[in-house]
Design a protein around this nucleic acid. Structure first.
Length: 501
RNA sequence: GGCGCAUUGGUGUAGUUGGUUAACACGCUGCCCUCUCAAGGCAGAGAUCACGGGUUCGAGUCCCGUAUGCGCUACCA
């Protein structure tokens, strides 16, 4: 039987990085075994589901290059089928109608309410099977339903016994029936509930392996009960450890903001392959020590056996621009930017420059060679794609900003540069061919003549030509910028010295 | 409250069926390289493997207990 897995997000917000990782693992598993990776949007919560969320999820998966097989399934489309199944279970006596009026619960204190109710039920000696409607005669149940009395449908869980399954990650899981309530399948308004819907859809889609977050580990027992009531085969389960915030709390939008949204990484200049690689390493470890794994290698080396059981902490520091997300993710992105094939990087840089209005069509045609050389030169110290339009701006535009600290350190600190820089420009105009070797020779000779260190010109020029204190080897910069731009920029420095004086 | 799961340096992880100085990556420190900053090279700091018992000649690895964290427990998903 071929492997069929699915990613089933609920469209109640952007794509969470934890969900993105689940999608990745499912995708890797399917691709590795030649199986199918299906996508199902779990939009049964009509109030919270939005179309924007759905498209944001789809966009996120596309960005990560996780393509799905077969048609996209919307769970809400299957609601009639879910209802019919619940009704069938009632006629078969595997479920029953509960005519207890719906309890009003305020969303804020659900956890507290659960604990309180458990305590009071224990005090009264009630157990999970104490529902008075559980053993209502079928005829009476039918009669009351026919009259229009509202009811919820609950699964009739046996009094004695236990569910048991082998989780591929967490091992043998057992749970006594006494710990499982007669769970609601259908609300009194006829709306099918999550546990019923997932099970029926998974059966329908012939899912063989359910790979999802560990938060569903204990619910799996209930779902197994539904599979059994329905007379369907139970799939294999593999639960994944959760991704936690630095303080080990749940990673959430409300508390942690945009760091948890996948689209943030796209918008802030991450290379998809890099983020995917980072995500894969959160909870899973490769069989050998190599951690830089492009998609094909990930798919080849991935295995559910390599998944750990302890929750992973996603490290980041709020309000710290340098550590706005996990250091290793940032490092991974820089690593990809500096080592990935140039041909793959260039289109990403193009998109970034275009967004920053720095892109010129010539880069695609006549100046393609120059453009690639420039990208190659500056990519080595960049962390994100954004750096190409920010720190790299001076390579693509004459309109760039000067870093104050750089100006102070490399220019105004030595007033003699006010005269020397224009003189250097004049010398560079006279150099015969303008390349790394000739420019270096000219600069060093000029420094020798003035009996100063060449560094003073090198660093001064760097700030003059790029606005910054750091960057690639300066002679390479001269060459890539070319004679004309270099000379103009060297001469434009006078205002700095005036304002400093 | 009940049930379940987890616990190896700051973070992510590796540690085969228990056996010498607990491994790798990120981060951190120093040195080298050097026109700056990175990258790269080299060196280094940092873990009594949550804690307490037990089994054993010997335990991060097995057993029990405790603590902490997380999850589930809903006519949410």
């Amino acid at each position: 039987m071929t492997v069929r897995v699915r990613f089933a997000p609920s469209p109640t917000g952007y794509l969470h990085i934890g969900a993105a990782r689940s999608a990745l693992f499912n995708w890797l598993y399917a691709r590795q075994l030649g199986g199918k990776f299906l996508l199902r949007i779990e939009d049964t919560d009509l109030q919270r589901s939005t179309d924007e969320s759905t498209s944001s999820i789809l966009e996120g998966l596309e960005w990560l290059e996780l393509d799905h097989d077969e048609d996209l399934v919307f769970q809400s489309d299957n609601a009639p089928k879910h209802r019919a199944a619940a009704e069938r279970l009632v006629t078969e006596g595997r479920a029953y109608r509960d005519f207890t009026p719906k309890e009003q619960r305020d969303d804020k204190n659900v956890k507290q309410g659960i604990a309180d109710r458990a305590r009071s039920q224990a005090a009264e000696g009630l157990d999970q099977r104490s529902n008075p409607y559980r053993d209502l005669p079928q005829s009476e149940s039918d009669a009351r339903a026919a009259v229009g009395e509202p009811f919820a449908v609950r699964l009739k869980v046996e009094r004695e016994g236990q569910t048991r399954f082998e989780d591929i990650v967490y091992g043998t899981q057992e749970r006594s029936y006494s710990e499982i309530e007669d769970l609601v399948l259908l609300r009194s308004d006829g709306h099918p509930l999550y546990n019923l819907s997932v099970v029926i859809d998974d059966i329908d889609m012939n899912i063989t392996h359910v790979i999802r977050g560990q938060d569903h580990l204990t619910n799996t027992h209930k779902q197994i009960l539904i599979y059994q009531a329905l007379g369907a085969a139970v799939p294999q389960f593999a639960h994944l450890p959760l991704i936690l915030a630095p303080n080990k709390s749940k990673l959430s939008k409300r508390k942690h903001g945009e760091v948890v949204s996948l689209t943030t990484y796209r918008d802030r200049g991450f290379v998809p392959a890099a983020f995917r690689n980072f995500l894969a390493l959160l909870g899973w470890s490769p069989p050998d020590e190599k951690e830089i794994l492009p998609l094909a290698e990930l798919a080849e080396k991935f295995s559910l056996a390599g998944i750990g059981r302890a929750n992973a902490v996603f490290n980041f520091t709020e309000n710290d621009p340098r550590h706005w997300t996990d250091d290793k993710a940032l490092w991974m992105n820089a690593e990809y930017i500096r080592t990935m094939p140039l041909a793959e990087l260039v289109p990403m840089v193009k998109a970034e420059l275009r967004a920053a209005k720095l892109w010129r069509e010539e880069y695609e045609e006549d100046e393609r060679g120059w453009f690639e050389k420039a990208v190659e030169l500056i990519r080595h110290r960049f962390f994100t794609l954004k750096d190409f339009s920010a720190q790299g701006r001076a390579y693509f535009s004459d309109d760039f900003d000067f870093d104050d600290a750089a100006v102070a350190k490399n220019l105004t600190k030595d007033p003699r540069l006010r005269e020397w820089l224009p003189e250097l420009a004049t010398r560079l105009e006279q150099v015969e061919s303008f390349d790394v070797a000739t420019v270096e020779a000219a600069v060093r000779q000029f420094a020798d003549e003035l009996e100063v260190k060449a560094g003073i010109f090198i660093n001064g020029s760097r700030t003059m030509l790029t606005g910054q204190a750091v960057g690639p080897s300066m002679f390479e910069v001269f060459e890539i910028l070319g004679r004309e731009r270099s000379v103009v920029r060297l001469r434009s420095g006078v205002p700095w010295f005036d304002s400093a004086a």
